[in-house]
């Protein structure tokens, strides 16, 4: 690419790239601080997890090489062998629930707000606001709202004659996780909405106009034109939701505590990982490293798989 570049004459002169690069020592001065900080505190520890997972730990001290023993322990030792699959299923449920509630709602809101209408900015800002608040604050706020005795939600349900619906939402193992998923969606819905809004803006008006001239109703326009063209954004939203949901931590801690109460019904991988590492036995660090490796492979692998699938889908459609 760069072999036949002659001066800057024939090229577009507005772009800044393509200068003669400065001396390597200057390059290093500019890049090294970020490189070191990022490598030492982020990349290197991530690789070390892989390495540490193969060793036995005694407290903070790394002992002998034990091969895959930590992985075997993870899957066979009580109570981990029960908590881990259960937490995994809860994360899967969390992801499916979030896709159905939060992202569908985000798409709906984005579509409703697409047509130029009064107050578009206002609604966007309002819907995005909870995203700013700490997951922990949101969790605590809603655990007060859903409190069985003094919580406003049950109070309102009783006041409007739906008293039979009033229940200890977070105290009942059947409703607790669903309640957390809804609260999480309440916090995050603005995010898919903004991404879908941006995606809708990128669809050219000519396409819409052409479809309208051909007699397409707005319903058909949405399902046959806009939705397929939004596929790249849907892909991004799906993958980000997946990554976010499999890392969920603060909101569950605030609403279900470190053990995912009631009765482990809200336990998720993030909490299991934390407990394994910092509330575990003497060999905790080896086990936690092994769990980190498994989670990393799973989350990264599935994300890549999903991105690939969506790309194929797009090619198929265009």
């Amino acid at each position: 690419m760069g072999g036949f570049r002659i001066g800057g004459k024939g090229r577009k002169r507005t772009r800044g790239v393509g200068h003669q690069a400065p001396h390597w020592s200057i390059i290093a001065l500019f890049i090294l601080p970020a490189f070191l900080l990022y490598t030492v505190f982020m990349v290197w520890p991530l690789f070390q997890s892989l390495y540490f997972s193969l060793f036995e730990f005694k407290g903070l001290a790394r002992g002998s090489f034990v091969g895959l023993r930590n992985f075997r322990e993870l899957l066979t030792r009580y109570p981990l062998n029960e908590q881990l699959p259960r937490a995994f299923l809860h994360n899967v449920y969390f992801f499916i629930g979030t896709m159905l509630v939060q992202n569908t709602m985000g798409l709906l809101l984005a579509r409703l707000l697409y047509a130029p209408r009064w107050g578009k900015r206002f609604f966007q800002v309002v819907y995005t606001m909870p995203y700013l608040i700490s997951a922990l604050v949101v969790g605590y706020l809603w655990s007060l709202m859903l409190n069985p005795l003094f919580g406003p939600i049950n109070y309102i349900l009783r006041a409007v004659g739906l008293g039979s619906w009033a229940r200890p939402w977070l105290g009942d193992p059947h409703t607790a996780l669903t309640a957390i998923i809804l609260v999480n969606a309440w916090q995050w819905v603005g995010f898919p909405m903004l991404l879908f809004s941006a995606g809708l803006t990128n669809i050219s008006d000519e396409i819409r106009e052409a479809a309208r001239i051909d007699g397409a109703t707005s319903w058909r326009l949405f399902f046959h034109i806009e939705l397929p063209l939004l596929l790249p954004v849907i892909g991004i939203v799906t993958v980000l939701t997946f990554i976010g949901n499999f890392n969920v931590f603060g909101i569950v801690w605030a609403m279900g505590g470190v053990n995912g109460e009631p009765a482990g019904s809200t336990d998720v991988l993030g909490l299991v990982f934390y407990r394994t590492a910092f509330r575990g036995g003497v060999d905790a660090f080896g086990l936690a490293s092994a769990l980190a490796v498994l989670m990393f492979i799973f989350i990264f692998g599935v994300s890549l798989f999903m991105l690939g699938r969506f790309r194929k889908w797009e090619e198929h459609l265009t």
């Binding site: 990022y38 990349v43 290197w44 520890p45 997890s49 993030g270």
Partner: peptide, 21 residues
């Protein structure tokens, strides 16, 4: 590419080595 890869890394999973470091 090396820097941008960090956008996708779940760095909380590195907490054990980070703690020891």
């Amino acid at each position: 590419a090396y820097f941008l890869a960090g956008l996708m890394l779940p760095f909380r999973l590195a907490i054990v080595p980070l703690f020891l470091l």
